[in-house]
Simulated scan of single mutants.
Amino acid sequence: MKTISLPNDIFIPQIKDLIDEGHTATFHVRGFSMRIFVEDRRDKVLLGPCNEKPKVGDVILAKACLCGATPDEIISAPHYVLHRIIQIENNKIILRGDGNIIGREVCEQKDIIGIALGFYRKGRQNPDLVTGLKWRIYSRVWIFLTPVRRWILAAYRHIWLRLFPIKIEQ
């Protein structure tokens, strides 16, 4: 199968159009910010419309800005992220990738493109649905471990990945 890479500025609006029409979209994730459960170029996300009000713990694709950005930075530097909601304050949604230790982004509900329904991990043909017991346990444990994530992620990068390198689909 041939793989085509497109810039997010072209690709994500197409995904948004599909989701706005009520479809789901599946694509390979890029980046390491959702590590250790979702790996760059290995895993795929299944996105659908965010028909309900999002909740803390949901993983969403959104157009977001860095928390604490100045008004000029907010206008000039929005970017797309697939991250977990860690806090909701009125209309402001705070996001953080599972593989991020301190970085956070902010968006509003209108900036949400889609919500993760599941993840195709490790080349599997069936997704781990976010409503499934396995994914709910992963999520709760990982959120609970936030204070010690720095050490877990370091061990994962420096020990686990050397012993068990990531196999990427071609």
Rank of each mutant, 00 (worst) to 15 (best):
P71G: 01
P71E: 09
D72E: 15
I75Q: 11
I75F: 09
I75P: 02
I75T: 13
S76N: 14
S76G: 03
A77N: 15
P78Y: 05
P78T: 01
H79Q: 10
H79S: 13
H79V: 11
H79Y: 07
Y80R: 02
V81C: 09
L82H: 11
I86M: 11
Q87M: 11
I88E: 11
I88N: 07
N91W: 08
K92P: 00
I93D: 00
I93C: 01
L95I: 12
L95K: 14
L95C: 05
R96T: 01
G97Q: 08
D98M: 08
G99I: 04
N100E: 07
I101Y: 07
I101W: 03
I101A: 09
I101H: 06
I101N: 11
I102H: 09
G103P: 02
G103R: 13
R104W: 02
R104A: 03
R104T: 14
V106R: 10
C107I: 02
K110L: 04
D111G: 04
I112W: 05
G114Q: 04
G114N: 06
I115W: 02
A116S: 11
A116K: 03
G118W: 03
G118H: 02
F119A: 06
Y120H: 05
Y120T: 07
R121M: 10
R121V: 15
K122C: 08
G123E: 05
R124Y: 03
Q125N: 12
Q125V: 09
N126Y: 06
P127R: 03
P127Y: 04
D128C: 06
V130L: 10
V130S: 06
T131R: 03
L133P: 06
L133D: 07
W135G: 06
I137K: 09
Y138W: 14
R140K: 15
R140N: 15
V141G: 05
V141Y: 02
F144E: 02
F144P: 00
L145N: 12
T146L: 08
T146F: 08
T146E: 12
P147W: 09
V148C: 09
R149T: 14
W151Y: 15
